[in-house]
Computed example of a mutant assay.
Amino acid sequence: MTRPHASSTSSPTASPTAAVASAPPTPGRAAGGNPANRYDRLTVVPEDDGWDPGEAPPPLRTETRIERPRTAITRNSSPDLPFDRSVNPYRGCEHGCIYCFARPSHAWLGLSPGLDFESRLIARPEAPRLLAEELSRRGYRPATLAIGTNTDPYQPIERTHRVMRGLLEVLRDFRHPVAVVTKGALIERDLDLLAELAELELVRVGISVTTLDRDLSRRLEPRAPAPERRLQTIERLAAAGVPVRAMVAPVIPGLTDPELEAILSRTRDAGAVAASWIMLRLPLEVEPLFRDWLAENCPDRAERVMARLCEIHGGKAYRSGWGHRMRGAGPHADMIAQRFRLATARLGLAVTQPGLSTELFRVPPRAGDQLSLF
């Protein structure tokens, strides 16, 4: 049983049918199906009706809907995060990373964190206008704005919708500091804006590299750029004067953690000036999705990976407590942290990036405004 996908420009609403509990693996997608989200009252289970068409199902097309939000800036007070404000250009992510901690957010829309998260996307084209309005409000105080902390702002649909490009233009005009996180090579399209912001010490970029194994990356992150393409993106950003932080994220114990030092070395050689790491997180619906992916793609290592995760999270696949969720605890987590410290010190990546400037912030004049004489 498959759910039809078609192009749409309506605002997102709750799915009219319950999510499919499981389905055959879909080419080009990481999730194996559409498990019910935690808010669904009903679960639909596919049943063999005896009619075997003898052919593979058609490719699952990406659907994009339009959301008209009331605000652009989202605030947070998490002690685990180095920022208190962010903007999300999109909901859902076509990169389709099976481990993405943002998958459960799709349940708020009445959609599944499975294939729906990868293929039923939400664009927010009015975000740049709303951001400009919020930055113009009397009493606004600038601080670094984070973009890409939930879903990737440079996922494929950015080519068409250009929401991220619009946000950068607003931030450039206001001379507002911004930190961008992405896997997307499409960020190179905006090198003109990023270089302009970098010259004023108003931007830094984090590029996520999970693995250097091309085949593993294609299965983990089916529509994200290949590892070598991300290294090339680091090179091009660095050449344009944009400071880049290499993000070894997430570290998957028993699967990608042996690559930690190699990833740091390759990203340093590409031009990264700092580095960070985050342990794999499996909140809510992500855990069963990841377990199914392991069983399908790495059956020989599935038991070991989950055993390591449970060791790191005190007997559970994931614990969300402050100060714990990003790193975990115990001998294996400590070993990864120590390896990271030693490698970054050896490679010159054990640096704290300087804060971005807030002193240049200004509200640009609008048409009809009287300009100052001074």
Rank of each mutant, 00 (worst) to 15 (best):
L237V: 08
A238P: 03
A238W: 13
A239F: 14
A240L: 12
A240R: 10
A240P: 03
G241I: 10
G241L: 07
V242P: 01
A246C: 15
A246I: 14
M247H: 15
M247K: 13
M247L: 15
V248K: 06
V248P: 02
P250S: 09
I252Q: 01
I252V: 14
I252E: 01
I252T: 02
P253H: 10
G254I: 02
L255I: 02
T256K: 01
D257F: 00
P258Y: 04
I263Y: 05
L264S: 05
T267M: 13
T267F: 05
T267H: 07
R268H: 08
A270W: 06
G271E: 12
G271K: 12
A272C: 11
V273D: 03
V273Y: 07
S276I: 03
S276G: 12
W277Q: 03
W277I: 01
L280W: 02
R281A: 05
L282N: 03
E285P: 00
E285Y: 00
E287A: 15
E287Q: 12
L289H: 04
L289W: 00
L289P: 00
L289R: 05
F290N: 01
F290I: 06
F290R: 07
F290Y: 14
R291L: 13
D292C: 05
W293D: 06
A295D: 09
A295C: 05
N297I: 10
N297R: 15
N297G: 03
C298Y: 11
P299N: 09
P299A: 12
R301V: 02
A302K: 08
E303Q: 04
E303G: 09
M306I: 13
M306G: 01
M306F: 13
A307C: 04
R308G: 00
L309A: 08
L309W: 04
C310H: 09
I312C: 06
G314S: 07
G315C: 11
G315Y: 10
K316W: 11
G321N: 08
G321C: 02
G323Q: 09
R325K: 12
M326V: 01
M326Y: 07
R327A: 06
R327L: 08
R327F: 09
R327G: 00
G328W: 09
G328I: 11
G330P: 12
G330F: 15
D334T: 14
D334G: 10
M335Y: 12
I336T: 01
A337I: 05
Q338F: 07
F340S: 03
G348P: 03
G348V: 11
G348I: 13
G348A: 13
A350Y: 08
V351R: 15
V351D: 04
P354E: 14
P354D: 13
P354L: 14
